[in-house]
């Protein structure tokens, strides 16, 4: 514990880091080597893969489009944006409300626990990098079990506490989520690495478009429209053999 404290005094805290460093840090927290366990989550996609409904690059791209626009952009991405904003305003009541909504929106048990698991791992990984007032407060609420620690809200708070631009925060979140899904599909379908690269490249303009939509969305635009994906997530826990935990 003392080691952690020393570490936290020694660097990367919020004040006075350049925009370039902020951006590099944003890359870092989305790197595949950043241990939040996204490679273990398929968020329902594995059910489709087992039903042989995602077998080609084109089917993967189509699936990702639905996930991007009708799950992420009208779900977690709005919560990321709103949390970032609330954190900038130090509006803790709003943050607690966003946590509650995030929990309530994830109806499939594995989606709910997956989001909490990623949040916990994120928290454990970033804490030794330096504690901002915001993260300290959120950590103490997490320890007191006042909040569950959903990833989308934590990520919004953390990026705000590092002064990272809101638009970049949202756009990287969408990119990383889609990239994670594609990498998992490449392993599970399986598809070639090149197909994965091409699928992601094809989706870049749509990720940008979805990011622009999110910037104009409010909490009134939270919708659970990807009902097929939700059904697949609910069914995932009953699959006979599974590579992923959601």
């Amino acid at each position: 514990m003392s080691v952690q404290k020393e570490d936290s005094n020694n660097r990367l805290n919020t004040g006075g880091i350049s925009t370039e460093q902020q951006l590099l840090h944003l890359f870092q927290i989305h790197d595949s080597a950043f241990p939040i366990g996204s490679y273990t989550q398929s968020f329902g996609m594995e059910t489709y893969i087992q039903q042989n409904l995602i077998t080609t690059k084109q089917e993967l791209v189509d699936y990702c489009k639905s996930y991007l626009f009708y799950n992420l952009a009208c779900g977690d991405a709005i919560l990321v944006k709103e949390s970032h904003q609330a954190a900038e305003n130090k509006d803790y009541d709003k943050l607690v409300y966003l946590e509650q909504i995030c929990n309530g929106m994830k109806l499939a048990r594995e989606l709910r626990s997956g989001s909490i698991k990623m949040g916990k791992q994120f928290l454990q990984t970033v804490l030794p990098l330096g504690e901002s007032e915001l993260m300290k407060e959120w950590k103490s609420r997490f320890d007191d079990k006042e909040i569950k620690g959903h990833y989308a809200v934590l990520y919004g708070i953390y990026t705000a506490s590092h002064g990272i631009d809101k638009e970049k925060t949202v756009s990287r979140f969408l990119y990383a989520s889609i990239n994670g899904l594609i990498q998992n599909a490449v392993r599970a379908v399986p598809l070639g690495q090149n197909s994965g690269v091409q699928a992601l490249y094809e989706l870049l303009s749509l990720i940008e478009e979805a990011g622009n939509c999110v910037m104009n969305y409010t909490l009134d635009d939270l919708y659970n429209n990807a009902l097929g994906i939700e059904m697949a997530s609910m069914k995932h826990e009953y699959l006979f053999s599974r590579l992923f935990i959601s």
Partner: peptide, 10 residues
């Protein structure tokens, strides 16, 4: 105080 379900459709 717990939001158990938040199910919205559009």
């Amino acid at each position: 105080e717990e939001c158990l379900a938040y199910d919205t459709l559009h």
